[in-house]
Design a protein around this nucleic acid. Structure first.
Length: 659
DNA sequence: GTTCCGAACA
């Protein structure tokens, strides 16, 4: 039975990436066999001996060098010589197209091959997976594979599991696992390595470990997959233990350990092992590990470290790597140096959608909404297709600048012009856009109409907007709803308490306070750190144990006097504890970002910007204080909180008090 | 055939 996979609309509707959309789905062009180029392939003399052997060998070479034109020429030769009916040769040809990532050629050939064997299928499945069409691979296997009446072999199971890992779909992965364990190939260690990888990436490291323990001969690949599984999922001790036991530590093994740490947010451990790796003089033959550690410095917001890594990138000759450049754009933006980010971006040759998106998101988070929108226009003008992340950045940019109409238009254009289905993130951005601009009813309509269940953060965003707009009535309605959801975030409780207090609903205020006191999770302490050249210093809220404690306090008191002269009155509404007003003000005085800024003012290079990072959102009072400080001491203060960047300069903030 | 890389909102 002929399977016309290219005509299946249900499969293509599941394609969600730009590459897939760019493909002509219905009618693929026919390859023009023997377009005069055939004779370029030097087979004449060899044909006299063993043409089959020669073409097979030439196909292997073409696959190895990912040479599409050579593969097409060999395809022409196969037709010309009359070997079209020889399945192993066609499979090698398909494999070569697959290795060249020549999707259209491969799909057309696949449709022409009949009958197909497991080799034919595994070549196609691995190509689809590598082409970001993992869901197509899995769907094809479940819908069309049985038509060919063949049993999947180890290669097919491995490719399919790779696809499930890409999709982070343990549900589909488990179904394939179930088929595998009752198959003839159930002892195949390569498939088991693929299973370890799939479960690791799907965040079930214990499932990965169960399979890992059944692998008879553990090689570098299976060990690396398990190391990654543990480090990615925060099981750092187990990751390090297996890593240490590895008889041979290849670059991918180091990369797996380090990138797992980074992805789990453990930048410190990542850098510790990167240092060890450098110490062991491991040859860095690919840039993956560099991307990871650049990402670690972005997470840690350490500009000094990021700059050192940028130097290493140049030293190792990876400046031209698009992956590395994109990571640098993101790193500089996250380390608060948006100008350096822009400089790296401007120097990239052949920017891809990730380069543009990283720059758009960076610009948006630094309050450069117009720049972000301008970059988008330029990106589209240059022929690049934005993806779902690009739109998150764009709507976010509009949201933080109050550009309601533009934001709405982008939200609609995402679906109508680019066929991207809005995710919960997009709805959250839209909701944020509307509510920040006071369009509370429209924001509520968005929540009620979206095809996702709103969570605590979604309702919280709307509630904080109600508070800002003074809509007590809707605020109470939402607060009642939120309270019934048993919220977990301490900030939600502050919001609830303030909402009820503003409506003089003291019974409800008491109820919220009682809930706080029995909350199972204690409040995360606020901390901030300031970078001072190659060093940084971290302060916890309310704690001042620094050797320069007295100078810090003196400076803050001096500044406080000047602020009061300008009419500053502390806003204690963000202090959760049941304290007297005086005590609340004292708490605010010792908020970690103020201590960090004070140390920065005392120790940073005179005139340089003070860069502070905070683990929570900047509270309203600190925001006012930092604006005033920037004016009083005439210094730029850049604070990265969990939400965005604030550039305080001359008494104003780049966020326009929208954050 | 299976391992390592970049961009996200509240």
């Amino acid at each position: 039975m002929e399977i016309d996979i290219i005509m299946d609309d249900s499969i293509y509707s599941s394609m969600s990436n730009g590459r897939a959309k760019g493909m002509r789905l219905k009618k693929l062009p026919t390859i023009q066999i023997g377009r005069g180029k055939c004779d370029d392939v030097e087979i004449d003399t060899m044909c006299l001996f063993n043409p089959l052997q020669h073409i097979l060998s030439a196909l292997k070479t073409a696959a190895k060098h990912q040479n599409t034109s050579q593969t097409r020429q060999l395809h022409a030769c196969i037709v010309k010589v009359g070997f079209e009916g020889f399945l192993p040769l066609l499979n090698s040809l398909l494999n070569a197209y697959s290795k060249c990532s020549s999707l259209e050629d491969a799909l057309q050939l696949f449709n022409e091959i009949t009958p197909r064997d497991p080799f034919t299928w595994s070549s196609l499945l691995s190509l689809l997976t590598r082409s970001n069409l993992s869901q197509v691979a899995v769907t094809l296997f479940s819908t069309s594979f049985s038509f060919d009446k063949i049993q999947p072999d180890g290669h097919i199971y491995a490719s399919l599991l790779n696809a499930c890992a890409n999709l982070l779909s343990s549900k589909q992965g488990k179904q394939i696992h179930a088929q595998f364990v009752i198959s003839y190939f159930c002892d195949d260690d390569v498939v088991k390595s693929a299973l370890v990888d799939m479960y690791s990436k799907c965040h079930t490291p214990d499932d990965a470990r169960k399979v890992f323990d059944t692998i008879r001969i553990k090689n570098s690949i299976s060990l690396t997959a398990m190391v990654y599984g543990y480090s990615l999922n925060g099981r750092h001790l187990e990751a390090i233990q297996i890593f240490k036991e590895m008889p041979f530590k290849s670059l991918p093994s180091w990369t797996a350990l380090i990138s797992g740490f980074v992805q789990h947010g453990n930048g410190i451990n990542a850098l510790k092992f990167f240092k060890k790796m450098r110490f062991e003089v491991i040859h860095i033959e690919d840039p993956f590990v560099i991307c990871s550690v650049v990402g670690a410095s972005a997470t840690l917001a350490s500009l000094a470290l990021g700059k050192q890594l940028h130097c290493l990138v140049i030293l190792l000759g990876y400046e031209s790597s698009i992956f590395v450049s994109n990571a640098l754009v993101d790193m500089y933006a996250k380390c608060s140096d948006i100008f350096a980010s822009r400089q790296v971006f401007d120097n990239i040759n052949g920017r891809d959608v990730v380069s543009w998106t990283a720059m758009i998101v960076g610009a948006a988070q630094h309050g450069w909404a117009e720049v972000a929108l301008g970059l988008f226009d330029k990106m589209v003008f240059e022929g690049l297709t934005p993806n779902e992340v690009t739109f998150v950045g764009l709507i976010y940019a509009c949201s933080h600048k109050g550009l309601v109409d533009k934001g709405r238009q982008l939200f609609n254009s995402m679906t109508s012009d680019y066929g991207i289905k809005p995710s919960l993130q997009h709805y959250t951005c839209l909701l944020d856009l509307l509510s920040r601009s006071g369009l509370l009813q429209e924001a509520k309509d968005v929540i009620m109409g979206m095809p996702f269940d709103p969570d605590e953060a979604t309702w919280g965003a709307l509630l904080s907007a109600c508070k800002r707009e003074g809509d007590v009535c809707m605020g109470i309605e939402i607060a009642d709803h939120l309270l019934s959801l048993n919220p977990q975030e301490p900030s939600t409780y502050i919001l609830l308490s303030n909402t009820y207090a503003s409506a003089c609903m003291w019974d409800q205020v008491a109820k919220v306070r009682k809930l706080i006191s029995v909350m199972p999770v204690s409040k995360v302490p606020g901390y901030s750190w300031v970078e001072l050249g190659m060093e940084s210093y971290m302060f916890c809220a309310g704690e001042l144990m620094h050797p320069m404690k007295d100078e810090i306090l003196r400076l803050l008191e001096e500044i406080m006097e000047k602020m009061k002269e300008r009419g500053y009155v502390p806003d204690t509404s963000s202090v959760l504890h049941d304290l007297e007003q005086q005590e609340k003000q004292e708490q605010l005085f010792l908020h970690s970002e103020r201590l960090a800024v004070a140390l920065g003012l005392l120790k940073a290079t005179p005139g340089s910007a003070i860069r502070v990072v905070k683990n929570l959102r900047v509270c309203g009072d600190c925001h006012t204080v930092l604006k005033l400080i920037s004016d009083i001491v005439s210094r730029e203060i850049i604070v990265r909180d969990t939400n965005r960047f604030h550039h305080f300069k001359d008494g104003i903030c780049s966020c326009n008090d929208f954050w």
